[in-house]
Design a protein around this nucleic acid. Structure first.
Lengths: 333, 333
DNA sequence: TTGTAAGCGTTATCAG
DNA sequence: CTGATAACGCTTACAA
């Protein structure tokens, strides 16, 4: 493997000049610079990242910590992170916490030392622990907000608002919410948005794991209530609701409307196709990279610029929502 | 940040001994070792990965290159890789090639220099390019095989065989195959398996992208043929087939049976739930880590142990397959 | 603009 | 079993 010294020798300059020619081309005379570049190409020179990292203190790596890679929500964010990081010439160290806060804590701690900055996605950590990491700097939160920490989130409240407006326009007056994990920041924001909407009675189906099985249970709960529509924490739950309503012989959307969140690929493939709130997840990932790179490159003595981004969401109306049945609700199952 | 020197000083030993106490505990006297360990814990010492990598030549990182993180197939493999790597104290650098062979080539080249070994998943590279990387060593292939290169794959042929046996037992005699990308190694293996089965006439619906839209087109093709069942390249395609059959008013499984591949989460959530071939993808990821770590740790001068693993698959029979309609095929749509 | 030289923190070598 | 010493390859004051 060719080293910088080899390149310098081949180009007839000192290692320092060779280094500059490669990383600050402006600060080297044209003639020498070209000889260095040529020599580097000739020898197939590639900088040794470990040496660079040791000397400069920056690895060029970004850390991405998320609860579950197999969840399409996080996978989309990860894709956005990947894409932007690559454009910026940075590599991404990914860590899957398996939804386990203890493991998350451990992984974040370990990762911090190997990367220039960490993107912490939908953290399951309690606020106090989270703060201890975030305060050490170089952390950007995704889908969670905390005072004094940069973050990128989607506008959960507006998603709920759009969904409920849609339902209200269709004549629904009682809507059930099949919530997500109690510890979920997104779920808390959505609950608040529910509470803020007027003219609709909310039936709280309680918290639950964000999986289809939870939707199955929630569907029966909804059927036992006066609700004519169900809003689910995410599409997985909504799909479970749809499934169970079919099993119970309740027609969707005629007898019960269903709205999901996230717009995962499967949402458009089921029947009826799911009305859901689509989130700009790739863009969330991209913005998170911008933020974390900015904080990593910033002079640590500067006042930390805390940016909080909120990206817009959009209700996608498909086949799982329709006008509420006129008069009384459906016949009790 | 505490360095090894600090720990050594606190423990009253030389840096060399401190280093040994931490990495080869067996080679240090008990008393000194304990003082080092205590001092390290006390000072919150963490090894500097860059320094270690520079000196030892191993970063502790593993590279994972895959076509699309948002594809549940690859996400599952990635989870397996993650989990096993973490257990082994290694971190994972992930690169998403966006199904682009040119980008893949570039990413593999870049990644190679930053990691101890690369797991190359479902490579889209032509064989010649692939070989040039693989021959340089420290590469493990997933879902692709190449002479002289370690690899982990699933038994595609057996999956096809199980699916076709199932269909034949149900009385199907003409089966359509909605294939995947022509460049896909898995698809080629599956085609071969189709050709090897006796007693069933295969209708080749041609190659296609592994997405639902391709299944929509394939469904119409199948309806125009004598096939009473469709086997799809993967579940996404199968879901598209299901969707279009419904649109065309063809009942599944009564009038047409459908089999997918991969067993993605959505497969169990649609109606009818999809009969599909489930693949041990997490395990594939785990095995790939074992292999790549073994090659990375091996003495480069040793004869490279080329291991080729083939993991078993299993047909999961759900609701999308049923006996072929007696007598003539369904009434033409 | 360029070169010299001093490390960054760790591990490998080698002598004791 | 332990310690001194020398790198690993690069960047960056500082000097010229």
């Amino acid at each position: 493997m060719a080293t910088l010294k080899d390149v310098a020798a081949a180009a007839g300059v000192s290692p320092a000049t060779a280094s500059r020619a490669l990383s600050e081309p402006g600060s080297v005379a044209t003639a020498g610079r070209e000889r260095v570049l040529r020599a580097a190409a000739q020898l197939g020179y590639r900088v040794n990242p470990a040496a660079r990292a040791l000397r400069s203190g920056r690895s060029g790596h970004l850390g991405l910590v998320l609860p579950d890679l197999a969840n399409p929500f996080f996978a989309s964010v990860a894709k956005g992170v990947q894409a932007r990081a690559r454009e910026l010439g940075r590599t991404v160290l990914v860590a899957d916490t398996e939804e386990d806060p203890a493991l998350e804590l451990d992984l974040v701690a370990r990762l911090r030392e190997q990367v220039d900055g960490v993107i912490l996605c939908s953290s399951r950590m309690p606020e106090s622990q989270l703060r201890s990491h975030a305060d050490a700097g170089r952390v950007v939160l995704v889908n969670r907000e905390l005072d004094g920490v940069p973050s990128v989130s989607v506008d959960n409240a507006d998603g709920v608002r759009q969904g409920l407006e849609h339902l209200r326009a269709l004549g629904h007056r009682t809507v059930a919410y099949a919530g997500g994990p109690a510890s979920s920041w997104s779920d808390q924001r959505r609950r608040e948005a529910f509470a803020a909407v007027e003219g609709i009675t909310v039936v709280d189906l309680g918290p639950g794991r964000p999986v289809a099985a939870r939707g199955v249970a929630a569907a029966d709960l909804a059927l036992g209530s006066a609700a004519t529509a169900v809003v689910a924490y995410n599409d997985l739950v909504a799909l479970g609701v749809l499934d169970q309503l079919r099993t119970r012989g309740v027609r969707v959307p005629e007898e019960m409307s269903v709205i999901g969140f996230d717009d995962i690929p499967a949402a458009a493939l089921v029947h009826p196709p799911l009305t859901t709130v689509t989130l700009p997840l790739r863009e969330v990932g991209r913005r998170a990279v911008e933020l974390v790179v900015a904080t990593a490159d910033a002079d640590p003595s500067d006042p930390p610029a805390v940016v909080r981004e909120l990206l817009g969401v959009e209700l996608v109306v498909r086949g799982s929502t329709a006008p509420a049945a006129a008069g009384a609700a459906r016949s009790q199952a």
